[in-house]
């Protein structure tokens, strides 16, 4: 029950952090390429790798891992917006940007989660 409440609270924080970072990136560097969501998904993937690594090698309690990993990182990063932005870029004739956004999100996202895990388990 405590874990469930913790996950909910961490998810609320994650959502607000995603919103603020996305708004800030749009404010600093406006443009068609969804830099905000890109940055959110990559940094969140790195953070999740980090947290799982801390759990695996440094004895981070399971409950903390669930709250930060599933709650914060899970809510901070988003799939629905990612997919929506890919389709909207394509619809607006920005096929190149759409492909670049999709491919770079996947490749850098996978690299980021691996790097996060590697940093804590070296």
């Amino acid at each position: 029950m405590i874990t469930l409440l913790g996950v909910g609270a961490a998810a609320a924080l994650g959502a607000v952090a995603r919103y603020l970072l996305d708004q800030y990136v749009q404010y600093r560097r406006p443009g068609a390429f969804p830099r905000g969501t890109w940055l959110v998904n990559i940094s969140g993937s790195f953070a999740l790798g980090l947290v799982v690594g801390l759990g695996a090698r440094h004895g981070l309690p399971e409950q903390v891992l669930t709250i930060v990993g599933a709650g914060f990182c899970g809510a901070y990063t988003t799939f629905s917006t990612f997919s929506h932005e890919l389709v909207r870029l394509y619809e607006q004739g920005q096929t190149g940007k759409s492909l670049l956004y999709g491919a770079s999100s996947l490749l850098v996202g996978l690299a980021a989660v691996t790097a996060g895990f590697a940093v804590t388990t070296l």
Partner: peptide, 9 residues
């Protein structure tokens, strides 16, 4: 929906 879906997992 942003929090319901996840990229990191």
């Amino acid at each position: 929906l942003g929090s319901y879906t996840t990229y990191s997992t």
